[in-house]
Each structure stands twice: as structure tokens, then as C-alpha cells.
Simulated scan of single mutants.
Amino acid sequence: MKKLTVLLLVTLSWLQYSLWLGKNGLNDFIYIKKNLMCQQQRNAVLKIRNEQLCAKINNLYHSVKNPEERQLSPTEITPVQKTDNSITVKKSIDA
């Protein structure tokens, strides 16, 4: 009976060790849980950014579809540079 008790205690000790300190134990679980929370936060930020980009794309698509309804903002208006391209003809006095 003592041998069975010792064998059960050794088995229980080994199982507890592998639960707490072994591969895929609680330490790994806590590490993975922290990484998961960080990844979820990062994904939330990227999801907001993707939604903003989709809204801009839809806005551009609809503005191309109806160009007469689109109004230019003051930052989109560029001044036209005027150039003076006049042709001058010189008359020679020799003739």
C-alpha cells in the first residue's frame, strides 16, 4: 500500500509540475493571453483606419460618378499662371 501511495504522489507531483511549469502550462497561457489582448487592441486601431479608407474610396467613387455635383474645396483650387507668348517680328532696314 505504501508503494501505491508513493507512486500516486509522484504521479500527482509530475502532473502539477507539467501544469504549472511545463510546456503549454499556465505560464504559456498567461503569455499568450497578454499577446492576444495586445493584438486585439492593434486590430481595433487598424479596423478604424480601414473603415476610414473605405469611406474615402466610396466618396471618391461617388464623386467620379457625379462630377457635376462635386464642388472643389479651397485647397484643391490652384491658380492659373498666365504666360505672355507674344511673337515679335523684326524688320530689317537693309531692304
Rank of each mutant, 00 (worst) to 15 (best):
I30C: 01
N66A: 10
S92W: 12
Y17C: 02
K82W: 11
K91W: 12
L9D: 11
E68A: 12
V6E: 08
M37V: 14
L12W: 01
Q16V: 09
Y17M: 01
L26E: 03
L8T: 12
Y31T: 09
L21N: 05
L15W: 02
N50K: 15
Q39I: 06
L72E: 05
I30L: 04
L12I: 06
E68K: 10
D84G: 04
N59M: 06
Q52K: 14
D94K: 15
T5F: 11
E51G: 04
L72G: 01
L72I: 00
K33F: 03
D28K: 00
R49W: 07
V10P: 01
D94V: 14
L4V: 10
T5E: 14
Q71S: 12
W14K: 11
Q81D: 14
A95V: 15
K56S: 07
Q52T: 06
T83F: 14
L46S: 03
M1L: 13
Y31A: 09
D94R: 15
K90N: 07
Q41R: 07
T83I: 14
L60E: 08
L60G: 05
Q81Y: 11
L46Q: 05
K3G: 12
L21P: 00
L7N: 11
I57C: 00
Y61Q: 09
S92T: 15
K47W: 11
K2A: 15
E51F: 03
A55W: 02
I87H: 05
K65V: 06
I30G: 01
A55G: 03
N66P: 02
E51T: 07
V45R: 09
H62R: 10
N59I: 05
K2C: 09
N59W: 03
R49T: 02
Y17Q: 00
H62W: 12
I32S: 09
K65M: 05
N66T: 04
S73L: 11
Y31C: 03
N66S: 08
L15E: 04
Q52I: 12
I93A: 15
S18R: 07
R70K: 11
N58K: 05
V80H: 04
S86K: 09
E51C: 02
D84C: 06
L26C: 01
C38M: 15
A55K: 08
N35E: 04
N85A: 08
L8F: 07
K56Q: 07
H62L: 15
I93P: 08
F29I: 02
N50A: 13
V89G: 03
N24M: 00
M1A: 14
L26A: 01
L19Q: 04
L19R: 02
N43P: 01
C38D: 15
T78S: 14
L36R: 11
M1V: 13
N85E: 13
S86D: 14
L46P: 00
K34Q: 01
C38G: 13
T83A: 14
N27G: 04
E68D: 11
L9I: 10
L26I: 03
K56F: 02
V6A: 08
Q41A: 06
L72N: 07
E68N: 10
N59K: 06
Q52A: 07
R42Q: 13
Q81M: 10
V6D: 05
Q71V: 13
L53M: 04
M37D: 14
G25I: 00
L36N: 08
L7T: 12
L36C: 07
S86C: 09
I32Y: 06
L53Y: 02
